[in-house]
Simulated scan of single mutants.
Amino acid sequence: MKILIDHQIFSSQKYGGISRYFVKIANKMNQFGENVCVCAPVHRNYYLKESGSKLSKGMYLNSFPPKTTRIIKAANHYLSKLIVHNLKPDIVHETYYSLNSLANKNIVLTVYDMIHEIFSNSFRNNDITSVLKRKAVERATHVICISENTKNDLITYCKVDESKISVIYLGIEKSFVMPEQLLPSKVCSKSFLLYVGSREGYKNFNNFITAFVASKKLVQNFNIICFGGGSFDKDERDFLIEKGLSEKNIAQVSGDDQDLAGLYRNASALVYPSLYEGFGLPLLEAMAYNCPVICSSSSSIPEVVGDAAEMFDPYDAESIQNAIERVVLDNSVRTDLICRGQQRVKLFSWERCARETLDVYRRVLS
């Protein structure tokens, strides 16, 4: 089977869950003997670069020149059309949402969440992701959703026939972490709670901070480390100062997967207060590194964590505070969550994800 994965997400992400997902399953499917090509003529994706020329013949740039992203994406689409014409793949798998496809048939699309539809106020008025998503879903032969929750939301908001959708969970595996890559000393000086990802509206970061500062025990004994999401902007800095937090209490750091793995391994817990997730890969990542998970009881999150996390009502700061205290102030609870997490992650693998994706491709072709 000749499978082509399009360039879209690799033109956008240097790191990120979506691009990692496609590289992981593409590598697995190649190992199974399938012919898989990531069609990204010019890209800036670290995972694709690390996979070497076997997976993609594209050119890697560490970063795109200023104000050229749109031009490069357009060039990628044009060049990819030529590649598709010559390669004649059996399946084209679209990695994100676009106005036009590279193919006219046998198109598979992955839908990750319905955040733009449910939390439309969190995005700019000129954001057309929802429009592009609807068009991509309509033209797709089959749609993969990464959770049952996303599938149900897709049916609700886009009126898609359920028979057109398959649910395939993401996978998880550890990255190797050298001892010297664990953490800088300034982070290790005090026990800390870990927050991963962006901090925009629906991520519910402010409610987490409100819950944290309401507890004298938490403030006295723990710092907060935020990984990713960019540096704190002025509004965030003002909010943190208003809550009585300074750089002595909270820090934002960035890095690669190795750096994140080190944080998981050293954190007292991952706190994941999001109001909505299509899946929530950091939840499983934390479990894989023996980091107890404290998280929302909303959207797809209970579906992913099962009984291996301490859950709270994300709209209730007191509920968040109580859940954090139950875990980080009681070693027996923390140890139990670590053990449950070790068992939970065994249910999720990239091999299983790849095999189930191949099953979808075969159904499309039949």
Rank of each mutant, 00 (worst) to 15 (best):
F205N: 05
L245E: 09
N204C: 07
E180P: 00
F227G: 02
P302C: 03
A214H: 08
C295T: 14
R237T: 13
L275K: 14
G228E: 06
S231N: 12
D256M: 02
K216I: 01
G230A: 07
Y195F: 15
A261D: 00
N206T: 13
V305S: 03
R265I: 02
S300L: 04
S296D: 11
E247N: 15
E303D: 10
C188I: 08
Y272P: 11
V253F: 01
L193K: 09
A286C: 03
S300D: 05
K186H: 14
V219D: 01
E180T: 12
A211I: 07
S297T: 07
V271R: 02
L182F: 10
I294S: 07
K217E: 15
L194F: 07
F205D: 03
N206I: 05
L284W: 03
Q252N: 15
Q258W: 00
A211P: 09
K203A: 08
L263H: 01
G228K: 10
S296C: 09
Y202A: 06
V187C: 06
Q220T: 12
K186T: 06
Q252I: 08
S191R: 15
T210G: 05
L275D: 12
S231P: 02
E303M: 08
S298T: 15
L270F: 03
D307I: 11
Y289I: 02
Y202S: 03
N207W: 01
N266D: 02
E200K: 15
C226G: 04
V196P: 07
E303I: 09
F205L: 04
K216S: 14
P184I: 01
Y264K: 02
K216R: 13
C291Q: 06
G255W: 13
C295I: 01
N204V: 04
K217P: 00
R237L: 13
R199I: 08
D238W: 01
F227K: 04
F239A: 12
L270K: 07
S189D: 12
K186G: 00
G306E: 07
